[in-house]
Design a protein around this nucleic acid. Sequence first.
DNA 1: CTACAAATATCGTATATCCGATATTAATAT
DNA 2: ATATTAATATCGGATATACGATATTTGTAG
Lengths: 103, 103
Amino acid sequence: MRECCDMRGFLSFIVLRLISKKNMSGEDIRKEMKKRKGAKPSPGTIYPVLKALSESGFIQEVKDSGKEKKYKLTKKGQKELKAATRKFCEIFYDMKEEFGRFC
Amino acid sequence: MRECCDMRGFLSFIVLRLISKKNMSGEDIRKEMKKRKGAKPSPGTIYPVLKALSESGFIQEVKDSGKEKKYKLTKKGQKELKAATRKFCEIFYDMKEEFGRFC
DNA sequence: CTACAAATATCGTATATCCGATATTAATAT
DNA sequence: ATATTAATATCGGATATACGATATTTGTAG
């Protein structure tokens, strides 16, 4: 249901955010996470997420040269991301100060 | 290990943040979540988190009149919150714009 | 065409959220 | 003292992260 406080969609949220900025493959995402966090998520983490997001119709494969499989956001995915962002901000509306201090 | 991208500590993160601002009981936290999200987390969600946080030494019961059991952050909890905030900002450093638009 | 390597896919396992339901505790009202 | 009620605690069950290991696909080099 994910009605109330379910924080379990955060990895999907992050992936959606990344893909929304630039078409990305699983490897692209893993590299970006490494840049941000210092460690790559394991393949067993990222590919199932991509699959689920794809099956939900939020992302879509893009034809591309090379062996990578790039994804782009669908219309549905854009709506989902917007809704998720709103929720995120409702929970963390008071993070602004910390963003100033830590980021 | 929660080394890389484990987003599964977010509820604890939120609870730690709330308690850091004001000593709070489980009910206080549920009410605050309702204010932010429109729905209360179920008791089965919040009390186990409080218990785990307490057993980890991050929060501590405070004597209080009334039937509520208020918690405060411990020194260890303060350190944990600071570290968690830093991690949070590393992942979401590019949320500033959205914070402007949505919050 | 074949070998290689990179990217992707899948599997088994573990833990952290989550919920609803039920039980317990404890302050208060009668 | 007992009943009421709010707060807390616990339980069973579900799903979303996570990992490491293994398998499969696919582009490229030879």
